[in-house]
Amino acid sequence: MASNLPDKSAVRASWLLVSPLALILTFFLVLPIATIVVVSFWNTNAFTFFPDFIFDNYAYLLTSKVTLATYQKTLKFVVLTWVFTVTIGFAVAYFLAFHVRSLSMQIALFLACTIPFWTSNIIRMISWIPFLGRNGLANSTLIEMGVIDTPVEWLLFSDFAVVLAFVHLYALFMVVPIFNTMMRIDKSLIEAARDAGANGFQILVNVIVPLAKPGIMIGSIFVVTLVMGDFITVRFMSGGQSASVGRVISNEIALLQYPAAAASAVVLLITVLIMIAIMMRFVDIRKEL
């Protein structure tokens, strides 16, 4: 710690300090993923799964029409959720960063947005029932207003409900990083743009959006990976009617088809990694902290 020069005892101290973290990530992240990859080549019979080296799990997975349909469905959820969360996230962060003038008000409103993040996702999903149910608030309001005559059935337990819940649960993952980058935009840049004759829209498109891009990308990485791997929101909000990649894996696990589940998990992991690699090209995460 005595200097910034590379010093053997300092490096050793660093290693000692990170070793518990490294050990936990090794045992509960690296080894589990390695195990999944290994088990995806294993075989199974009526009672158990056992070591082998077969490609049947992948062959079945990659030739099944269900797989393609599931991925299409999951990507549909990803795209819809991303469009809504990025729009909401940008608007909310913009309001907080540029329209709210006092810092204490900014902090208070920001906290108001973040507090739901610290409560249970399951409860937040359940809490849509009285809104969206057949006799729920949405239906009774629409009937009262004369928009519809009979209750709409597709509000709860539908793809609509799934996307709604995703947006509800994950909008915050957009708000926080976008707000974070916007707060660091030098206000004089905006003044300069205005002095140079740019109108509000031009400032937004040519100054703010480019500077907020890292935040948008970090938020997008969160939202995309959370939706890609989700199984519980889709299951609950669609009433078990919609499929997603995560649900396929969780169903295979429930049927104790571990090698099949492992193969599905590997394909999901590769898909997610490719998507992240594409998004990472636009941002240097280490610089954004």
Partner: peptide, 19 residues
């Protein structure tokens, strides 16, 4: 590795540790 831990789908951790 830390970033990976954050963005890896949770069901993979669950499945891997369970396995």
């Amino acid at each position: 590795l830390v970033i990976a831990s954050l963005i890896i789908p949770s069901i993979l951790v669950s499945l891997g540790v369970g396995l």
